[in-house]
Nucleic acid binder design. Structure first.
Lengths: 226, 226
DNA sequence: CCAAAAGTGTTAGTGATACACCCATGT
DNA sequence: ACATGGGTGTATCACTAACACTTTTGG
């Protein structure tokens, strides 16, 4: 049930969306952070996000904020969790709906907006101290990312359209933070039928060029592997 | 990042919590619904819930509403999803954080509060038309319930402290909506070491009494089985 | 002794893991 | 010819699925 009385007569919390955006860059798992230009936590690094407007859905708000603050668009986006501890923002009650997103970082150029001083990719192993409860939110997002990688095909969102099987395997190794066996990895990828080979090969490499693959489009956008 | 400006200067949506409470009763999977006593959707059945107060966390709000509206407490509770389509409530913008809960229905007596006309368990196969987007929320909850059952030990929340292995298996069969093999089920339960046998037996049965088991407390509250 | 549910093992198939060598290309 | 990563198969083990009869109790 929605409620018992007229919604107008209650105090209302503020609602924000936060977006934890991951990418793979320089052989490392990175998360996008912005440097706050306003109080509270001015000059600290934080997860990008902002207020939900009255006329937009939560997902629209997440996409808009990401574009405004960081110039990033066309990402894989999914809702993560809603954090609503009354004390999480020192000023007033703020409930934040967090989203988790993945991009291939080659596809765009970062750009700080007027609201933030700076935008930067941080290795998840070298994070600065974060504003609000953003440390918790990030840890939660990382768990979800690892889970998703194992049981769905989200990994493709981190790669260009055509990729080698070694590139795909490297994504898994970086995120899972462990080595995988090449033969077993390929066997599984083929058994699941999630990639299709193309007739093209890698170029500009100083060794035997690898065959390029693309995502098998017969399986929908994001397939639950199990 | 939380935001760029003073939160006070934005219009704020209302925030509610909704609780989808499942139980097993008469060999069927049931969900708790309340009959609305107020507009909008007066006299329709809906998922119990209500406004989040400024000083309480989301989870506290969920527990409070459940107790107030239905007299139910001590449930397994977990956050499900946040629904925020701008049009989901015809009056004003309402964002709802949904929770998913499980109880053993023998443990309490239902009681309608002043805000609702009636409270009732409905079989998930015989649902009335629901208020708002509550049909969608319920479908989502059901998916999550099935998933949780397969990969965690939430099923114990639906049983009394001591139970037979057949009772446990029946929970799985009702929720998964398929028959399971008795020998394989028992083999798996034992291999996972999630139950401990007691020295007691069923009584008041007209056939060979089954041994009673209890949850193995060495595993924490809710264990991820995989 | 009959009805009802409890309890118990084996086999076959499927998927996961461990492991090492030859191949194609550029320099 | 050498260095670099690309590409491939087999054996073992663990887990899943299919399947039927005997036991214990109350009536």
């Amino acid at each position: 049930m929605e409620e018992e009385f007229d919604p107008e007569k209650y105090d209302r919390p503020s609602v924000t969306v936060d977006i934890i955006l991951f990418t793979i860059k320089n052989g490392d798992l990175k998360v996008l952070l912005v440097k706050r230009d306003l109080e509270p936590f001015k000059d600290m690094w934080a997860i990008p996000g902002g207020f939900v407007r009255m006329e937009e859905s939560l997902e629209e708000a997440a996409k808009r904020e990401l574009l405004e603050e960081t110039n990033v668009k066309d990402v894989y986006l999914e809702q993560l969790y809603t954090f609503g501890n009354p004390k999480r923002d020192p000023r007033t009650r703020v409930i934040t709906v967090s989203y988790f997103a993945l991009v291939n970082s080659d596809k765009f150029k970062l750009k700080a907006s007027t609201d933030v001083k700076d935008v930067k990719w941080f290795s998840i192993y070298e994070l600065p101290k974060l504003a609000f409860d953003h440390q918790d939110i990030l840890e939660y997002a990382l768990k979800r990312l690892r889970w998703k990688l194992e049981y769905t095909t989200v990994a493709f969102s981190l790669l260009p359209e055509r990729f080698t099987l070694t590139e795909l395997q490297t994504i898994y190794e970086i995120i899972m933070h462990k080595q995988l066996d090449k033969r077993n990895f390929r066997k599984k990828v083929k058994a699941l039928d999630i990639v299709k080979e193309t007739s093209e090969y890698q170029s500009d490499v100083t060794h035997r060029p690898a065959k390029l693959y693309k995502k098998n489009t017969k399986i929908g956008e994001i397939v639950e592997i199990f």
